[in-house]
């Protein structure tokens, strides 16, 4: 399983989301290997990951990605919002978590 966090530059806010996802996965005791990486809008293609995380206002810039695999975030630093999104994915994919 691979998560990819995307932003315009691929260095700042996407990296921040990656760090938050990684700490949340750890806190949720997810044992399955999930790779989390970050990238910029321009170089992101559907084959690069299973799920894509992006700030909501940039949603239109990733129209090339399948909508059911794109998570639009209102806040990049709201633990509850990110955790809710991750829980939804883990449950859909039958991945164990606490």
């Amino acid at each position: 399983m691979k998560f990819l966090c995307i932003c315009q530059s691929g260095l700042g806010s996407s990296f921040m989301v990656q760090m938050n996802i990684q700490s949340i996965l750890k806190a949720m005791n997810v044992k399955e290997e999930i790779t989390v990486d970050h990238s910029d809008v321009g170089s992101t293609t559907p084959d690069l990951a299973d799920y894509f995380f992006i700030e909501k206002t940039l949603g239109e810039t990733v129209a090339n990605l399948p909508k059911d695999r794109v998570i639009l975030l209102n806040s990049l630093i709201d633990k509850n919002e990110i955790q809710a999104a991750i829980t939804k994915i883990l449950d859909k994919e039958n991945i164990a978590h606490s």
Partner: peptide, 9 residues
């Protein structure tokens, strides 16, 4: 690119 740098409230 718009207000995406508004990363949280």
């Amino acid at each position: 690119k718009g207000p995406y740098m508004n990363i949280g409230s």
